[in-house]
Design a protein around this nucleic acid. Structure first.
Lengths: 181, 181
DNA sequence: CGCTACTTTCACAAATTTGTGAAGTTAAGG
DNA sequence: CCTTAACTTCACAAATTTGTGAAAGTAGCG
């Protein structure tokens, strides 16, 4: 976590010039928007907490304190987040604590996993075309859906390249090769 | 619904050359994949049923029979689907029945509504940058996230144009101006 | 090799979500 | 207008999901 001198999740800012309470409100607000979009609640909260952390990296215990949840809840959330490649698990050498770290290019990874979902859908939809017959209106409609998804996946690649180009023009602070958005 | 002569959701195909049971399995399978991706179960099932229907259009009663659910459940699902612009509500003139119809360019609409979500997120994230300070690592990371989302939204427009171009090269059946994928 | 600090797993209780039947509402057709 | 078919709303029961405490498992460090 960023500062050891901050108070807990609902505590008032102390000396760090950062309003811990406002940060916590932001974390909760963004988490709840992600939840509305379909992500599990605890996973959203953990992710948002990491996003708002300067290191982009917190230990299990830090997360539990900051979010006021049990270690078990942290474990579950973090498990999910590593599954979908949004967060990495590290171990500080010489410590028994795991650290969880925002992966490089989180959003890229997130979109990439969407991509995997699309692939699954495509296979089901192709089966649908077969069942309905490509000459039926329904079959044709579903075939067009497949075509659209295939198009989307192809576009995604180029889009990511363009993003990396665009990113350079943004005057960003240098990458440290660790936590990034 | 497409055929009045088919039996119910689990019935065996009769004369239409379409295997009703296989269609139903496809509907359920695709619906469950959409559900896994975050859509409400009943909404997914209704949507999938419409997708597999030749007209892309069914009445409330037809949906209730095909999916074995209560009118109340249809009502709820359809309400959601119209909210997110995936399905349109019509009324056959001279009838008391509503018809629900797949909208033109459903997937386009779906992505467009994603777009609205991104906009909401952006506003929250910008607030986060303000709270954390753009000069802090966390603030900078979140600012980059905002930039990425803005980039994405900009890309979406061009991508849809390219899709429409690409679509023409696909040798699709002519549009009837009503139900499409 | 065992102590201890941490993480994970498990069973359960609480909360939330989901779908239903029934009552209420709306509007077409007489 | 009245009748009646259809849709919607509402309260509730069932099912699912969620987060917890406690027990079990792992791995540093002496």
């Amino acid at each position: 976590m960023t500062s050891e001198t901050e108070t807990g999740a609902t505590g008032q800012s102390m000396s760090s010039g950062r309003d811990a309470e406002a940060v916590s409100r932001f974390v909760e607000r963004f988490a709840s928007e992600m939840t509305e979009a379909g992500m599990q609640r605890m996973a959203s909260r953990v992710f948002a907490a990491l996003l708002a952390d300067d290191d982009g990296s917190m230990t299990s215990a830090e997360l539990a304190v900051a979010l006021q949840i049990s270690p078990a809840a942290v474990s579950g959330a973090v498990n999910y987040l590593t599954q979908v490649s949004m967060v990495g698990r590290e171990r500080d050498p010489g410590s028994r604590r795991d650290r969880y770290r925002l992966l490089d290019e989180v959003w890229f990874a997130t979109f990439a996993s969407r991509d995997r979902v699309l692939t699954r859908w495509e296979s089901t939809l192709k089966e649908g075309v077969r069942i309905l017959g490509e000459d039926t209106p329904a079959g044709a409609r579903i075939a067009e859906t497949v075509a659209f998804f295939e198009f989307l996946q192809a576009e995604l690649v180029g889009m990511m390249d363009r993003w990396h180009e665009h990113r350079k023009t943004l005057g960003l602070p240098a990458r440290d090769g660790r936590a990034n958005a």
